[in-house]
């Protein structure tokens, strides 16, 4: 039986991880799982810790990984995340060129690393190598990279292929929702329903932010305000790197509360001054300065 199906033992932790309930995901005990499932469970737990910034937990966890390639990839990736730089790490590059293992997690971490260091094409190549394994997460990342490079057309193709192998999997559903919210039209609705449901059953900051996004896309301002209220009640560390604030800014702009916008922008700058919103905003302000000067 597929261990990820909704009766399988990995179903829950997987759902928690992908729906952004990282604390819950780290709560699992390895010994409560059957032996073949343990490596995958450990991966999810370690990745959750990584996202939560618990690097010590990660470093101790790595010790227990049997597969040396996997443990190496975790080690390097942790190093990369900790450095908080976009500079490539030579050792990681070497590792990726030489590694022969087709483990899913190595591809995933590797491709994220490559994409973060600005080498999206290489990331895509790495993912392609693994796509024969039908790893859902690899496909998902591939689609996200397509979107990030403004190739929604390719993303649409990929997602329709993806739908043939997975109809009802959280990773597929998530990926599909991203594509849908970019595609728009009636697809907004289906994306909206997905987040409405998952934010009820598996509430997390990440899901609620997406629900907020969909509400805004559908011009539902009062509902958006409700989601923002709900976001405040979530007692969870904000690991969204500023997305939480950036989307709220959009809401307040639409609602005409510009003081609030300025306040949140300041907050976002302190939290993550490299957030695309801030980068973009500064760019536009500069652009506007030029215009003022040009016509004056």
């Amino acid at each position: 039986m597929d261990p990820f199906s909704d009766s399988g033992e990995l179903y829950q932790i997987r759902k928690q991880f992908f729906s952004g309930q990282y604390l819950k995901a780290t709560d699992h005990q390895l010994d409560s799982f059957s032996e073949p499932a343990v490596p995958k469970v450990r991966e999810y737990i370690l990745r959750s810790h990584l996202i939560l910034g618990n690097y010590e937990e990660v470093e101790t966890g790595i010790q227990n990984i049997e597969d040396t390639d996997v443990s190496k990839s975790f080690e390097l990736y942790t190093l990369f995340v900790k450095s908080n730089e976009k500079e490539p790490i030579e050792e990681f590059d070497d590792f990726l060129t030489n590694v022969t293992s087709d483990s899913e997690v190595i591809t995933v971490l590797g491709s994220i690393y490559l994409a973060r260091t600005g080498r999206i094409d290489e990331a895509l190549k790495l993912l392609e190598k693994n796509s024969a394994n039908n790893s859902m997460e690899c496909i998902s990342i591939q689609i996200q990279l397509r979107i990030l490079t403004n190739r929604l057309d390719l993303a649409l193709k990929d997602i329709s292929n993806f739908s043939k192998i997975a109809q009802d999997d959280i990773v597929f559903n998530l990926t599909e929702s991203w594509v849908n919210l970019l595609k728009g039209g009636s697809a907004y609705q289906s994306s909206f329903y997905f987040y409405e449901e998952i934010s009820q059953s598996n509430t997390s900051l990440k899901n609620l932010i997406c629900l907020l996004i969909l509400n805004l896309q559908l011009h539902h301002l009062p509902e958006s305000a409700e989601v923002i209220e709900q976001l405040k009640t979530i007692n969870e560390a904000d690991v969204t790197n500023g997305d939480l604030l950036a989307n709220q800014i959009t809401y307040y702009v639409l609602n005409g509360e510009f003081e609030k916008v300025d306040e949140l922008r300041e907050e976002l700058i302190t939290q993550n001054s490299e957030h695309p919103y801030i980068v973009d905003y500064n760019e536009k302000v500069a652009l506007f300065d030029d215009i003022v000067a040009k016509y004056h």
Partner: peptide, 24 residues
């Protein structure tokens, strides 16, 4: 600003930019 949104997707890759259209 009024039409820009940031979808938190895969952790580490940065948000997906999404947009608000005039006709839903």
């Amino acid at each position: 600003q009024a039409s820009k949104l940031y979808v938190p997707a895969t952790e580490g890759l940065g948000p997906i930019k999404a947009y608000i259209r005039s006709d839903v």
